[in-house]
Write a protein that binds this DNA or RNA. Structure first.
Lengths: 341, 341
DNA sequence: TTGTACGCGTTATCAA
DNA sequence: TTGATAACGCGTACAA
């Protein structure tokens, strides 16, 4: 067995200087090639590129930032109190979308959990010139406690702020419209008693989805309809469904504020010996993993979360680079009809 | 209404130089104060600190990195193919733990999705001196395709590698031991026919938890026991449970490889009119949100995922700073006894 | 204990 | 088109 002994130790990270030496040009030229400046002799450029490949050279971010006065970094802020967001599949997908978009840019994504205990630390970090832009994903998407920074730094939020918001850039699903369509599916199918299990009324998605349901129900001339409030968890959905059923009024369909609550409604409905969709049709919202793992498969609204994240990043990058961008962008949703309605 | 007009425009980011000027000392002194060097006159230090506060000065990371030749950055790699990891609550919690730990250090967390299409980009980034250490969380925790970098850069993995692993640092739950304890709970309670719904056998957690169940069952003199394999999803758990029941052999208890599969088993068991835990006791693994949202509340193994992430970060930081660290650390688990067993 | 001065790797300005 | 050379903001020997 032949061993190729490596006595060289960890090879020093190649610098622009070394590339210049190898290619027989000045550092300035190498820099130009790296940033593909137009004014550089094609032949020289080639030899420089060869040298870069030969040395496996990668520009040093720190040095570049220092010279450029730009960090090429985008920071994702996660408020600590709401660090339950991590348990939220919504959060995960948003981050995925953000990361995917940034992968194709020169920006690097970094994440900070901002402890409410000492926000100055976060503030200092953000304003210290270490970051070019900020993305905020909080659980209560209404929490825009960082809004005040948007004067000093480009910022984009996930979700509409609960109050104000005229100042900030944000991306959200078209919750109201989607809820309306989902409910229409029910009324158009001839359901006459369409109840809803709404999300928390201090969160924009909870509010908007309820509003969408309401207009559809009214439009169909079904009166005011039955409403119960949950907190987006499966358990709360089950409890809400039980309360609905306990009212003793007829119900032949339910629109749930999200899929988890819809799954909860399933257990309540089926637990009482009723069947879905024969006795009660169910429609959810989000199209998350619950939708296909329950029986019958859940008819729901597809929430383009990854695309939402992607869009947030795109808008932020535009903002950073001085390009125009919409303050509010609403992602289109679509109805996914399965077996529950 | 009195307006305080701000005509100054965006205040320039304060530099160490400005602090020095304000405090009437040299930049070197300010630098010493910032890095709290021992040898600096207490009084001077005070005035410098005042100046720092007055200017709201924050050190420039880029400049510091350049001078120090350290990035003060830790990168989290998420393999793209497995970017489904994002949907995995495990991933979210690990990241949370990592972020929480790093918050109290001088390290910044950044995240890259490594596209298998062009791994050189990621490689270049990592080896370009932009990063001090790497954390890897992949879905198939056996995927240690980045292991080769560990010679050049400190790296810590979430989960034991499927093969090899003698070289790498990793943190995992003590899956086998925990599975053993969980199963013992069943056998100790007098259950005589303890089956299992195991996870994928190409994933270490799937393997280890099955192994733990097996030794407990054998130890109790219950023969080989019934086994079915799932893929950690709720639906697969339900299917596996049905297969188990269809075998026509007696079953009075089931150990599921994770809570999602346990929830699936619930639907199968209850769907056949059997009751939990009277007819069949069920124990899960992970103690995730499913555990408390099902009825009866699930007895399960608490998987300290956030702590696992925290530990990964801690080990990485130690590695970076040249302190000693264990190659493999197994996080202790605990049994959470609820109503299903 | 404090200050001077140089270097970290890149970009950008200005001549050539 | 190319090449010196001066920033960029900070750490750190070294000297004082």
């Amino acid at each position: 067995m032949t061993m190729t002994q490596d006595t060289s130790g960890p090879r020093p990270v190649p610098t622009l200087e070394m590339v210049a030496a190898l290619a027989g040009v000045s550092r300035a030229t190498v820099s130009r090639v790296v940033n593909d400046s137009p004014s550089v002799d094609p032949e020289l450029a080639q030899s420089v590129k060869r040298a870069i490949l030969a040395l496996d050279y990668t520009p040093n971010r720190a040095a570049r930032s220092l010279a450029t006065r730009r960090a090429n970094t985008v920071t994702l802020i996660v408020p600590e109190s709401t660090s339950k967001v991590f348990a939220d599949p919504f959060f995960a997908s948003v981050v995925q979308g953000i990361a995917l978009y940034l992968t194709d840019t020169d920006y690097t994504l970094n994440m900070v959990i901002s402890s409410e205990s000492k926000p100055e630390k976060t503030r200092g970090f953000l304003l210290g010139g270490n970051v070019d832009g900020v993305l905020v994903v909080s659980h209560h998407s209404g929490d825009h406690s960082w809004t005040h920074l948007s004067g000093s730094l480009p910022m984009v939020f996930a979700g509409r702020p609960l109050v104000g918001g005229g100042e900030s850039y944000y991306v959200e699903a078209d919750n109201e419209q989607a809820a309306y369509s989902a409910t229409r599916l029910l009324t158009d199918a001839g359901r006459k008693h369409v109840a809803t299990i709404a999300g928390p009324q201090d969160m924009p998605p909870g509010l908007d989805r309820l509003a969408g349901w309401r207009t559809a129900v009214r439009e169909a001339g079904l009166g005011e309809g039955l409403t119960e409030i949950g907190d987006f968890t499966l358990a709360s959905g089950a409890r809400a469904m039980h309360r609905l059923l306990d009212r003793g009024k007829p119900i032949d369909a339910v629109f749930a504020g999200n899929d988890q609550m819809a799954a909860g409604a399933y257990t309540a409905i089926q637990g009482r010996g009723l069947s879905i969709p024969e006795d009660i049709a169910v429609v959810g919202f989000d199209d998350d993993s619950f939708a296909t793992s329950v029986t019958p498969a859940l008819t729901t609204v597809h929430h383009p979360i990854i695309e939402l994240g992607r869009k947030m990043a795109e808008i932020l990058v535009n903002l950073i680079e001085g390009k125009p961008a919409e303050r509010v962008t609403r992602m289109p949703t679509s109805l996914v009809v399965r077996d529950s309605a």
